[in-house]
Design a protein around this nucleic acid. Structure first.
Lengths: 218, 218
DNA sequence: GACAAGTCTTTTGTATACATTGAAGGAGGA
DNA sequence: TCCTCCTTCAATGTATACAAAAGACTTGTC
């Protein structure tokens, strides 16, 4: 593994998991010492992070960890609804029925996964990730897929802020199942509507369970 | 100006203007000699270009200039319609009426600009650029604006492929004027429809006037 | 003559030394 | 005491030396 990949992976994880608070200045020498590599790969990592929007080059002097405000979350979900709604519709038109039928069945059984004692809900999120991947593959549009991938990084950060309690996860699984079902049925409008519904509920949940910027940057 | 900025700007321009053909391998030493800077800023420039999608890191051995296929153009316009349609609708809801009224007036007079003897149509494209900026500002959604900016880079490349003849440009200006008018009127659905119409006509024009990959990589 | 193995070359990846720039702090004067 | 200018220093930007890896070429053998 390249040193720059390692630096990128560690920094990215630290930011997404909120171990590096927004506003934190990531100095090159400091991070290179912490990560055990030289400044060169750290610079490349920071460059990649800034391209993703996880960090911002603050006026020539150091890069800082990007903040996520309440407005940001609204904006993210507005874009997300646009992109994922279109993606669901396209998947309904172009996807393979069998793939989404299987996902539909799996998602309906998702509550079993959640009742397990894994606090990180790895299995659940892996299943939802499979749905995302199936949609990405079905739409046959690399630009749209890329745009959604860019957004997902930020959405994971938001998810870490919200309390992913079991009731909400169970409900979300059924919403995902509805999306998969609509795609499997080849019903584009229904798939888009199911996506819209799911995203609105997710956003409501996020806003209800957490006041952003409560614990960070004052 | 930083050396890395210069390297980035020159390479970006070269790729967009098709002076660097798709598939061209951009070796670090070669480019650093050509641009008169060292490898370090060249690496950073190539990194940025790859993040934008103008180049692709080809399996450990050099980065190559990205190609644009006919399918790519279809995919780009599919995403573009999604993003710009939504943006136009949001601008209609949130934008300042006066700004778009002015743009509407200017765009209706655009044929005067095109009749000039500037082969690059600088004034015309500057005016269209002003409309894009006005929409970006009106939507109050940095994530959506960012997604559109990412796409525009690739769209400029496509535009360079197509013959931007005066008749099409005159028609396009009126289509843009219709968008501005709908936004000024605060009519979201109309703004979205006008955008859809414009994009479909643009795509038809591109596909009619040019067969992609005719002269390169093959 | 063809295939395979090993070496050799070229290119990228990393580290570090040097240059440059911008900010912060102190000294001097008003 | 406050403002200004200068010095200093710390951080980034650049260049280059060195390391490692991926191909290409050569050479030997079958």
């Amino acid at each position: 593994m390249r040193a720059s990949d390692k630096a990128y992976a560690v920094l990215r994880e630290d930011i997404i998991e909120w171990r590096l608070a927004p506003g934190t200045v990531l100095a090159e020498v400091e991070q290179s010492e912490r990560l055990g590599v030289s400044r060169t790969p750290v610079r490349e990592a920071l460059s990649r992070l800034s391209a993703e929007g996880l960090t911002t080059a603050a006026g020539g002097r150091g890069v800082v960890v990007t903040d996520i405000s309440l407005d940001d979350i609204d904006e993210m979900f507005e874009l997300r609804e646009t992109l994922e709604g279109k993606a669901a519709a396209l998947a309904a038109e172009r996807g393979e029925r069998s793939v989404f039928l299987q996902l539909h069945a799996d998602l309906q059984r998702a509550p079993e996964l959640i009742s397990d004692d894994d606090p990180a809900r790895h299995e659940y999120y892996a299943l939802v990730g499979r749905l995302d991947e199936a949609i990405d593959a079905a739409i046959s549009n690399s630009y749209l897929a890329q745009a959604m991938r860019s957004l997902r990084v930020h959405l994971v950060r938001v998810r870490r802020l919200a309390a992913d309690d079991a009731p909400r996860l169970n409900a979300a699984a059924l919403e995902h199942a509805a999306i998969a079902e609509a795609i499997a049925a080849g019903n584009a409008k229904l798939a888009e509507a199911a996506t819209t519904l799911h995203l609105h509920r997710s956003l409501s949940h996020v806003k209800a369970t957490h006041s952003p910027n409560k614990e960070h940057h004052g």
